[in-house]
């Protein structure tokens, strides 16, 4: 226990942060995507350490299994005709960095200043998948349905947006223009 935190946590945390940094700094897009995956994995581990097994596993399933793959697909699909000539970082990257640092500073300050006394680590809540399922069907049934609709809409929307435009023949316009 270094500074009140366990080694396992420390290592996982370092892994996560490094993965995020790698995603930020790497030039090759695919490498970025893969480091993103590493970050997702680190986060899943952290969830497991916190006792949120369901969240952890769903993180692995959804994020690593779907979102990361999706990102890789997108990168591959937008490889483009040639190698991009542009630089990787925007011309005003410093401003973005500064802002990000400001955000971190704000958050860090808030965290540091808000726990003057040690809070006793309470016991982990008793969670089972069954209780989650029951809760989903009773207390959280409305958000469940809404998310279902949302997912449907997103699915349809994504399909439509990404669908290639069908070249409809302009027969109707030609026929009317020929009179």
């Amino acid at each position: 226990m270094i500074f009140g935190i366990s080694i396992a946590f420390l290592l996982t945390a370092i892994l996560t942060v490094l993965g995020a940094l790698a995603a930020a700094l790497l030039k090759n897009l695919v490498h970025c995507a893969l480091s993103l995956t590493v970050t997702f994995a680190g986060l899943a581990l952290l969830y497991l350490q916190l006792g949120a097994q369901f969240a952890g596993f769903s993180q692995i399933l959804v994020y690593i299994g779907a979102v990361a793959i999706l990102v890789v697909f997108a990168i591959l699909l937008t490889r483009g005709a040639g190698i991009p000539e542009y630089r990787d970082f925007s011309s005003s990257w410093l401003a973005g960095l500064v802002i990000a640092a400001a955000v971190f500073a704000l958050l860090g300050w808030a965290v540091a200043r808000s726990f003057p006394a040690n809070i006793a680590a309470s016991a982990a809540p008793a969670v089972t998948v069954q209780s989650i399922g029951a809760a989903l069907m009773s207390t959280y049934v409305l958000p469940l349905e809404i998310v279902a609709v949302l997912l449907t809409v997103a699915l349809i929307g994504a399909v439509i947006v990404a669908m290639p435009e069908s070249r409809t023949p302009k027969s109707g316009a030609e026929a009317s223009g020929g009179k």
């Binding site: 995603a23 630089r87 970082f89 990257w93 990000a100």
Partner: peptide, 30 residues
């Protein structure tokens, strides 16, 4: 540092890095 605080700091760090990616990289996917 309490465990909670540690987790929160990690989360803040990852958040800041994600924000930095969004604000500085040129590629839309990134």
């Amino acid at each position: 540092m309490t465990p909670l605080a540690a987790f929160l700091v990690v989360a803040a760090l990852v958040f800041a890095i994600g924000l930095a990616i969004a604000l500085t990289r040129r590629n839309a996917i990134l």
